[in-house]
């Protein structure tokens, strides 16, 4: 029983990480209207900037993490303006395929600069706490806390701030938003900054709780897709729930089937949801 509880708690942590990784992806899908496959590579960029500053340049972890997140946010904005803006009117499929190309470029750059091999940050070893027989490390608790904090602040941002409201308006109807005097370009830029910044945050978390290798981004995109599809493409609040579901389902599955099949759970989610209920948990169909 304790073992199941342990898998459940680990699943929650995985889920919280997936929430952080997916919210930016869903935000891009909602506002820019396409699936940004390169989103996962941004996690890699941020993780390796943090790693580089932390271990190679000897910075303490916190400033390294902050620089990594900010740098990733601006890189995302730059790529968005350079690559995606000019082809936006060619339709979501072309944007989707283009983002595969972008993922190649970023992935190749990381490979070339960092090189292969397994890396980890130069931070104190995790301290393990035990509640009722279930173990959790302090870093895992940080991930859970940050996911909760991100969920709340994103809700506040989207509901209370002017930019947030503009993003929502633009997501629902770009033409109407523009005619009501919303600066579409400025809003689009804000979206890229927020979405990539969130990817940066998730990347730093990844560096903190896992070991890094250069192919890490590819494994993340599959899970991000699973979460985003289960939530319903483009919906934001359902991501919180579906991230937890996918995370718990993946980690609990280890109890029943061989661990090698753990990633399969994510794909199974993709297939089942798309075949049975393409609109996902959120229930609003966006066509």
């Amino acid at each position: 029983m304790t073992l199941i509880a342990q898998y459940f708690v680990t699943g929650i942590v995985t889920g919280c990480f997936l929430i952080l990784a997916t919210i930016g992806f869903s935000l891009t899908r909602r506002v820019e209207g396409f699936l940004n496959i390169a989103h996962a590579e941004m996690l890699g960029v941020s993780a390796f900037i943090a790693w580089g500053l932390n271990t190679q340049a000897g910075w303490p972890f916190l400033p390294a993490a902050i620089v990594a997140i900010v740098a990733t946010a601006f890189l995302g904005l730059f790529i968005g303006r350079l690559v995606y803006d000019p082809i936006r009117n060619l339709g979501p499929a072309v944007l989707l395929i283009s983002s595969v190309g972008v993922a190649y470029v970023i992935g190749g750059a990381i490979d070339g600069i960092v090189g292969t091999g397994i890396r980890s940050l130069d931070i104190p070893l995790a301290t393990t706490y035990k509640f009722l027989g279930v173990r959790i490390t302090d870093y895992q608790m940080i991930v859970v806390g940050l996911a909760a904090l991100t969920g709340i602040s994103l809700a506040l941002f989207l509901n209370k701030t002017k930019t947030g409201l503009a993003i929502r308006a633009m997501a629902d109807n770009p033409a109407l938003a523009a005619s009501r005097g919303i600066d579409v370009q400025k809003t689009s830029r804000a979206t890229w900054l927020v979405a990539s910044g969130l990817a940066g945050l998730a990347g730093v978390m990844l560096a903190m709780i896992a070991t890094l290798s250069t192919d890490i981004a590819f494994h993340q995109i599959l899970q991000i897709l699973a979460v985003a599809i289960l939530a319903g493409l483009g919906s934001l609040y359902s991501v919180l729930l579906s991230g937890l579901i996918v995370g718990v389902a993946m980690d609990m599955s280890v109890y029943f089937i061989p661990a090698g099949y753990r990633p399969l759970i994510a794909f199974a989610v993709v297939i089942v949801v798309l075949l049975v209920r393409p609109e996902g948990l959120s229930g609003r169909s966006k066509s």
Binding site: L90, I106, G108, A109, D111
Partner: peptide, 29 residues
């Protein structure tokens, strides 16, 4: 190897950028 990778991606993005797939665009998703 990584430069080859980057070049491939770059070529890909550039071709999609300057080749209008108008036929595809109107299909939408």
């Amino acid at each position: 190897a990584s430069v080859e990778y980057m070049m491939t991606g770059l070529i890909f993005v550039m071709i999609l950028r300057w080749q209008p797939f108008t036929r595809f665009a109107k299909k939408g998703a």
